[in-house]
Simulated assay, not measured.
Amino acid sequence: MDWDDLRIFLGVARGGSLAEAGKGLRLDPATLSRRIARLEAQAGAVLFLKSPRGYALTEAGHRLLPHAEGMEARARAGVAALAGDDSLRGRVRIGAPDGVANHVLPAVLTRIRASNPDLGLDLVALPRVFDLGRREADLAITVSAPKAGRLRVRRLCDYHLSLAAHRDYLAKSAIVKSRADLKDHAIVGYIPDMIFDADLDYLGEVGAVAPGLASNSAAVQLGLIRAGGGIGVVHDFMLAGAPDLIRVLPGDVRLTRAFHLSRHSDAGGPLITRAADLLAEGVRAEVARLEAAATES
């Protein structure tokens, strides 16, 4: 296939519509439509589902996508080599649970981009599992290691969680001397039927009752706890930025989990590989830094 045709394909796949793709490619929608039709004829397959809402990749389009991205990455690497520049160019989408997305990744991604100004980074923060097979993200951070699908998975690092509450809540509430005392306290946690990963079922592990205040978002749970809503399980890397919170039963309750980084086995090329390495290195360093800061505070 001609690279120029694949460039058109990538523009439409990423833009989701002819009008949006045309802004970056500097081509009008009619021209793009003809080029896509020609590419589909050459490929002998329909690559996009067309609707009034835009263009969505078909299964055939999803199969072509990593190969087109690989060609794009190789072309950019060649240009960079000629220029003596090894910084990353392109765009990478990262999916992550909202806790790590809000409290760890901002610093990590900012540092990565500072060293790679031609690299675009999209951070999708959602409390659910990302479908890498359908290219919802190029890289996904998860708690449990995915077991289904054609994925490459690496363990990033361990992280820790503690019971915590606002100092004002604890000042006016019964003293917590043991896990059994938690039954007499307001509890903040996940909405039970919206826990998307078994490793996030913290309350059962610490022996707490069902939450009175609940959210599917770790960041919202932190907000509820900081507002005095009760006792909840908080990531230690979040505690570094919440000096108003006090650990509860610190000698008894400290949970350990791990972050994993996944990519689809077909999502290759030097761009994704190097971005994954930088992301892994950055997450490990930032979690360690924040947990150390929380311990000192």
Results as ranks from 00 to 15, higher is better:
A218M: 07
D184W: 06
A81H: 10
H62W: 11
D197I: 09
R7L: 06
L156T: 05
I94R: 00
A280M: 06
I225N: 05
A280L: 08
A45Q: 15
G251V: 15
A77M: 10
R289W: 00
H166T: 01
A186M: 13
P97I: 02
G230K: 05
G120P: 03
A75Y: 04
R76D: 05
V108E: 01
I231E: 00
G70A: 12
F237G: 03
G70C: 05
D201F: 11
G44T: 05
I141N: 03
R89D: 09
A293L: 15
Y169Q: 02
E40T: 11
L261P: 01
G229D: 08
L18I: 00
A242K: 10
G84W: 07
D277K: 13
A258G: 10
A73W: 00
S173V: 06
A101I: 02
E59D: 14
H103N: 04
S115L: 13
L255E: 06
L82G: 14
G16R: 03
D244N: 13
I225T: 12
G24W: 05
L200I: 06
G268C: 12
R26V: 13
A145Q: 04
D2T: 13
V188H: 03
G54P: 05
A288D: 06
S297L: 14
V104A: 01
R274W: 07
R14Y: 07
I187P: 01
S215R: 13
P146W: 12
R257F: 07
V108C: 02
T273Q: 13
T256F: 09
L132D: 03
G99T: 09
A43K: 11
D184T: 11
D28V: 10
R257G: 12
G11V: 09
S51D: 12
R284D: 04
D184E: 11
F9S: 02
L119V: 06
D199T: 13
D86I: 04
A164M: 02
S215C: 12
A101S: 08
D158I: 04
V92L: 04
I225P: 04
D28Q: 14
R89T: 14
I191Q: 15
K23A: 10
G99V: 10
I225Q: 07
A41H: 13
F196I: 08
L65A: 08
V206C: 04
A68M: 02
E296D: 14
K177M: 12
L121N: 02
R150G: 08
L213G: 07
G204Y: 10
H264P: 05
G189N: 05
L151N: 08
A41Y: 10
L88R: 01
G204E: 07
R93G: 03
I36W: 00
R254V: 14
L182T: 01
D122R: 12
P192G: 12
P270E: 15
A288M: 09
E40P: 00
V220C: 11
R226P: 01
E20S: 11
G16Y: 00
A293G: 07
R179D: 00
L271M: 12
R226N: 07
R26N: 13
F48D: 01
V206E: 01
F196Q: 04
